[in-house]
């Protein structure tokens, strides 16, 4: 603790007031065990039928839900197709042919040479960047949500400072529910499953704070492109 002093006593008094209000005692083995059990077992609510029903096409559901939230969704067979999809999207939206991404190996391997004049940069977002490119850790079909983990591979600012955000979602990483995505996070990231920032992104930035009318592009990206990609 970097701020000793009064803090310690408030901590103890709040915790003892909670116990008094609950009629509980400190270190009651039964209460500790009940909490421990939930933390270990991690019970889940029943998954929504929209993704749990037998034969559900998770990719189709993911795409539909994300489109409902005003994102553009494109399916590609694999990495070689991605640069052309991005160039076409930027042209269609009257955006300069440049973008920035982190040192994610998959994104770094994309070859934009086919599009003359296309510029790519690496690192965290700068205020004048127009497009950020990120790779999703997972796609969540139930709400058309993309989970992004922050780090040098996918700097968090790329998803919020530029006007356009493009996210690549490997088809193999599309799961049914939030809980499935979290299970994968625990499984793949081991002892420290949480990055500094885990962003669940489900559409472009929006607000309804003026007269209740929805306006796209409040503080974050004005447009969002999701590219679902296969293994080719």
């Amino acid at each position: 603790m970097s701020h000793p002093g009064g803090a310690k006593t408030s901590r103890d008094s709040i915790l003892s007031k909670i116990r008094a209000s609950l009629g509980a005692t400190q270190n009651d083995p039964a209460r500790l065990a009940a909490a421990e059990k939930r933390l270990i077992a991690k019970p889940r609510a029943a998954p929504p039928q929209r993704v749990a029903a037998a034969g559900t096409d998770l990719v189709a559901r993911f795409k539909e839900e994300l489109q409902r939230q005003l994102a553009t969704v494109v399916e590609t067979a694999g990495a070689p197709e991605i640069p052309a999809v991005i160039a076409e999207y930027l042209r269609a939206n009257n955006q300069p042919l440049r973008l920035r991404h982190g040192n994610d190996p998959y994104l770094s391997s994309l070859d934009f040479a086919e599009t003359p004049g296309f510029k790519t940069f690496q690192g965290r977002a700068a205020p004048d960047d127009t497009t950020g490119l990120s790779a999703a850790f997972a796609g969540i079909a139930e709400t058309g949500t993309m989970a992004l983990t922050s780090g040098a591979d996918n700097p968090v600012t790329l998803g919020f400072l530029p006007d356009t955000h493009i996210i690549v979602v490997p088809q193999s990483r599309i799961v049914a529910t939030f809980e499935d995505a979290f299970a994968r996070l625990r499984q793949e990231r081991g002892h420290t499953p949480m990055p500094r920032t885990l962003n669940l992104i489900s559409g472009p930035s929006r607000t309804a704070d003026i007269g209740g009318r929805i306006v796209i592009g409040a503080h974050g990206p004005r447009r969002l492109l999701a590219i679902i990609t296969g293994d080719h």
């Binding site: 939230q69 058309g144 780090g151 968090v156 500094r196 920032t197 962003n199 472009p204």
Partner: peptide, 20 residues
């Protein structure tokens, strides 16, 4: 169905993180 952004923050930036 869900808001545009749901953000989980855990501690300060990690070693090697360029932002946060």
């Amino acid at each position: 169905e869900i808001t545009s952004y749901t953000t989980f923050s855990t501690g300060p930036r990690h070693d090697g993180d360029p932002d946060g």
